[in-house]
């Protein structure tokens, strides 16, 4: 590990000023991804600005009925919070499906969004990777592709975003609250992460020195039912091959509203807008759900080693929506 300076931020202004002042400074919160990357040599900042003691550990109601989740709230505490369990079950379920209890006790809301891909080539400094070392090439294109993208990839990068938590947040239309040298802004979660294009080095739209302070969840109608399904290679403690977050509102057998996002399939949590458009106003029946899933996945461009994921995503989506519709009809 390359030596680095360490600064414990005293307040938000101090954190932003200190991080902005050095081009290769980075923020430290839970450290579950960053410390591993320091050790692997994937990143080598000269300064860590520790934001883990800033007062971002509250979960508060918003005036419009939504909820503001502080960036420092630990994944375990967010999953256990009574409001999240009652009103946003797909978010609680996604958190509980990710990592292990030990990691969730350290990992934060902000850090979860900023975790980097688990692509085996990105994580191995001995192999070419355009995300880690721009211009070096993409090893996955002729390599092991089981955990790679089927949607929105480019010739430069086929990595997927590893977060479970971010998938329901994308479906919910959550907003990421940021503060930086040029002030505060809110970015829709669906616009926070990037597709790789020709600049796979950049995972998000964050500017250098910008800090996540909170994530805002909009209110969901009480009649909405939501669920998270994760498909993986073992029963626990593994990253998703495919995951589905869906929230469904049905009245008199007709889909009034639906929000869907897929995980494990793209460089960002994939909001399934085509499936949603297909479903709004349709009968809440398995045939409609299948048509919606097929509409979404029509543009999938898997690699030979990830081709199974197109079928897996379709079936997972049909299964989750059918389950939600049946639950609502009971």
């Amino acid at each position: 590990m390359i030596p680095f300076d360490y600064h414990r931020a005293t307040d938000v202004e101090d954190a932003v000023r200190t991080a902005t002042s050095r081009p290769d400074a980075t923020y430290l919160a839970g450290g579950t991804n960053l410390v591993d990357h320091l050790r692997l040599g994937i990143t080598s900042p000269s300064l860590l600005v520790d934001v883990s003691r800033l007062p971002f550990d509250d979960i508060d109601p918003l005036p419009d009925g939504g909820v503001r989740v502080g960036a420092g709230v630990r994944n375990s505490d967010l999953a256990a919070h009574p409001t999240i369990r009652r009103d946003y079950p797909m978010l609680a379920a996604a958190l509980l499906a990710g990592a292990s209890w030990q990691l969730r006790n350290l990992a934060t809301t902000g850090g979860n969004l900023l975790q980097r891909t688990r692509c085996a080539y990105f994580q191995n400094p001995a192999t070419p990777c355009n995300k880690r070392e721009p211009g070096s090439g993409c090893s996955a294109l002729a390599g092991w592709q089981r955990h790679h993208a089927i949607l929105g990839a480019s010739e430069h990068c086929v990595a997927v975003h590893p977060s479970d938590m971010a998938v329901p947040l994308a479906a919910l239309d959550a907003t990421v609250r940021l503060t930086g040298a040029h002030g505060d802004r809110g970015v829709p979660l669906t616009a926070f992460h990037r597709l790789p294009g020709d600049e796979p080095r950049r995972d998000t739209v964050l500017e250098h020195g910008e800090l996540i302070t909170a994530v805002d969840l909009p209110r969901l109608p009480p009649t909405t039912r939501s669920a998270y399904r994760k498909v993986r290679d073992r029963a626990s403690y593994a990253f998703a091959l495919v995951s589905v977050a869906a929230a469904l509102t049905v009245t008199d057998g007709v889909v009034r509203d639906v929000r869907i996002a897929l995980g494990g399939v793209a460089h960002k949590p994939w909001r399934a807008t085509r499936a949603e458009e297909t479903l709004r106003g349709a009968d809440a029946r398995p045939a409609s759900f299948r048509a919606a899933a097929e509409a979404e996945l029509a543009e999938a461009e898997p690699l030979p080693g990830s081709a199974f994921k197109t079928t897996m995503a379709r079936e997972a989506l049909v299964s989750v929506l059918t389950g939600l519709a049946e639950e609502g009809a009971r």
């Binding site: 430290l28 450290g31 410390v35 591993d36 030990q102 990691l103 006790n105 350290l106």
Partner: peptide
């Protein structure tokens, strides 16, 4: 157990 909660101590920086 860190302040009573289980964590992986290999991923925690002592200084933090």
């Amino acid at each position: 157990l860190l302040d009573g909660r289980r964590i992986t101590s290999c991923l925690a920086l002592a200084v933090s």
